[in-house]
């Protein structure tokens, strides 16, 4: 492991029960960069983030964060490490029984001894950064999808983490919110001097803002490179993904028996 990489996957495999999800993934996320993990729905992107956060353990290999193997940490070590990570969940996962302000203040109150007046200033700064200082007294149920995502973003960076993880930050957003979130991801990363991992299937939006891309399919990394290399790539998988074609290496059909046989056109069953 080189010190330049904040996160490293070292030949990681993972299965849910008997079902293999990841099959020998090796990848590196250099410090200070914004790296995208792309792949179709269900290919194991969220699983990779859970491995980094130590919520699940690899069955083979190891995930290292800042030089420490995550699955070898004890409960205290894991919690220490998580304090330096921020994660934006797929649907925000805001605490529904707390106001926007209290959501962002949550970790400060749990993990620091800061006075309420200092917390107030910090929370307002974070909310200002995502443009929602005026929404501090709203409850999560009163927010639009894009606003909720921005609040979750402010909450994820509340303690100025060294690593920020985004799970599908663009899913279900209108085009304007899409651009806003994309720019925020880039700006927050650079302003905090953090490292970011963006998990997404939204190619165009993410190619605009990231430094490097890994393509995951069927549990392995099938392609990687800078956004420009990806756009120019003639690998069939990358081409299909970047250009949104329906059929290609990723089949349109879920695996099934032959169509004719299913419709019982073979004569035998008829």
């Amino acid at each position: 492991m080189t010190a330049d990489n904040l996160v490293e996957f070292q030949n990681v495999s993972f299965s849910y029960g008997k079902r293999p999800i990841l099959k020998g993934i090796s990848m590196a996320v250099p410090r200070g960069k914004v790296v995208a993990i792309m792949g179709g729905s269900g290919c194991g992107k969220t699983t990779m983030l859970r491995l980094i956060g130590g919520q699940i353990r690899p069955s083979v290999g190891a995930v290292a964060v800042d030089g420490q193997r995550v699955h070898e940490l004890d409960a205290d070590g894991l919690y220490q490490m998580r304090r330096r990570m921020g994660m934006l969940f797929q649907f925000g996962a805001l605490f529904t029984d707390m106001s926007v302000f209290d959501n962002v203040a949550f970790q400060m109150r749990e993990h620091t001894d800061l006075s309420e007046s200092v917390i107030r200033d910090l929370v307002l700064m974070k909310l200002h950064a995502v443009g929602l200082r005026g929404a501090r007294d709203l409850m999560p149920s009163e927010l639009s999808g894009g606003m909720a995502r921005r609040v979750a973003l402010a909450r994820a960076v509340a303690l100025d983490p060294m690593l920020i993880m985004y799970d599908e930050p663009f899913a279900g957003l209108d085009p304007i919110s899409l651009g806003v979130i994309g720019n925020l991801i880039r700006r927050l990363n650079d302003a905090l001097g953090a490292t970011s991992i963006v998990v997404t299937h939204d190619v165009h939006e993410s190619l605009e803002i990231v430094d490097y891309v890994y393509f995951v399919s069927d549990g392995v990394i099938v392609a990687q490179g800078t956004p420009d290399e990806m756009r120019a790539s003639d690998k069939p998988f990358v081409h299909q993904f970047v250009h949104g074609e329906e059929d290609g290496p990723v089949p349109f059909h879920y695996p099934a028996s032959a169509y004719g046989e299913d419709l019982r056109l073979g004569g035998k069953h008829a």
Binding site: Q55, Q80, R82, M87, F89, Q90, T96
Partner: peptide, 25 residues
């Protein structure tokens, strides 16, 4: 219903990722 929904909407997971134990909190 409240705890179940917090789990279904990943609020408990989010809390764990913030290094706060949901059982304690």
């Amino acid at each position: 219903a409240e705890i179940g929904l917090m789990k279904a909407t990943e609020q408990l997971s989010a809390m764990e990722m913030m290094a706060v134990n949901p059982i304690a909190r």
